[in-house]
């Protein structure tokens, strides 16, 4: 089993040091006990509301967290435990990043040379042209500036850039902002192809409907913690799901009744001790106030004291 594990994130926590109004410095524990696994040939979606910590996971994997943050946790890539230095070595090579928007490109440089990473060797040109034609980008894309790209083209340019070095894992952070479901699904087909050929994709999104359409497994984040890792197929029925929050998400899907559950995801400073979902939970009991271990149920994992 672990042979096939491409990426394993264990007990990741990230905190920020910031200022309150004035001069008092405070630490904010934004991510705590975050876990996610991506196997070879798998597309795993990380879903969660904004503020659940999903983008920070991507930034940690790529070593691009802001300087005022502290991150610790065990990240294994192909079975090897990573440290900060190895993350920097893997970035852009074995782990590739597909960002949300063109703002991640240098606005003053042509797309082609950015994809080639300024290399002026024949192979780079050939590889880049091959990739552009593979992703149906017109040949002239090479000479365009980032602002001239449409959203869809930008996404394919990012993919080409990611594929320049043969990556094993693609981390995509909200790659389909503002697209409707059909278009988003369509634009993710290249990611699916990549996974089907044995790569791993970590898709970060807030759109659970999209995640269910394209991915194999879903990691549900809530208030900086993984509350459940489930199979996409588990979402066919509420009973197959494990965590009360995931169940609430399921009930809120339009096809399942669009039912609202009261309460809000707590802001970092207001996070409760113990279970982060306790204030909203319908099956809350006193044992939810202490630390809760991750448990495995039906091949998925869940962070809940009373999950069955």
């Amino acid at each position: 089993m672990s042979q096939k594990e491409l990426l394993k994130v264990e007990n990741l926590s990230v905190s920020f040091t910031g200022y309150e109004r004035g001069f008092r410095q405070i630490d904010l524990q934004v991510i705590e006990n975050l876990n996610v696994t991506v196997k070879k040939g798998e597309m795993v979606a990380v879903v969660g509301a904004s503020g659940s910590g999903k983008s920070l996971l991507a930034h940690t994997l790529l070593g691009i967290l802001p300087p005022n943050s502290t991150a610790c946790g065990n990240i294994y890539f192909e079975g090897e435990l990573l440290n900060a230095q190895k993350i920097n070595q893997l970035r852009g090579k074995e782990i590739a990043f597909v960002p949300q928007s063109v703002t991640y490109l240098d606005p003053l440089k042509k797309v082609g040379s950015q994809v080639r990473k300024d290399k002026k060797v024949i192979e780079s040109y050939r590889k880049q042209q091959e990739l552009f034609s593979f992703y149906d980008l017109p040949a002239k894309t090479d000479n365009l500036y980032p602002f001239e790209l449409s959203g869809g083209m930008a996404r394919r340019v990012f993919l080409s850039a990611a594929m320049m070095e043969t990556p094993k894992l693609i981390v995509a952070d909200e790659p389909t902002p503002g697209l409707h479901l059909e278009a988003a699904k369509n634009s993710l087909k290249h990611f699916r192809e990549f996974a089907d050929k044995g790569g791993g994709v970590l898709l970060i999104t807030h759109d659970i409907e999209l995640a269910l359409e394209v991915s194999d497994r879903i990691a549900v984040f809530y208030a900086g913690t993984t509350v459940e890792e489930a199979f996409a197929s588990d979402f066919q029925s509420e009973n197959l799901l494990r965590h009360p929050y995931t169940k609430a998400l399921w009930r809120a899907l339009p096809q399942n009744g669009f039912a609202p559950t009261p309460g809000v995801q707590p802001y970092v400073k207001d996070k409760p001790q113990g279970c982060v979902y306790a204030p909203r939970c319908s099956v809350y009991s006193s044992k939810c106030n202490s630390k809760i271990p991750m448990q495995t149920i039906r091949n998925g994992s869940v962070l809940c004291a009373c999950a069955k």
Binding site: L253, F258, P260, T261
Partner: peptide
């Protein structure tokens, strides 16, 4: 509601 999670979406629309 596009940038919000499903539960919040459902809450907002039902309100």
């Amino acid at each position: 509601s596009t940038m919000l999670d499903m539960i919040t979406q459902a809450q907002i629309w039902s309100f």
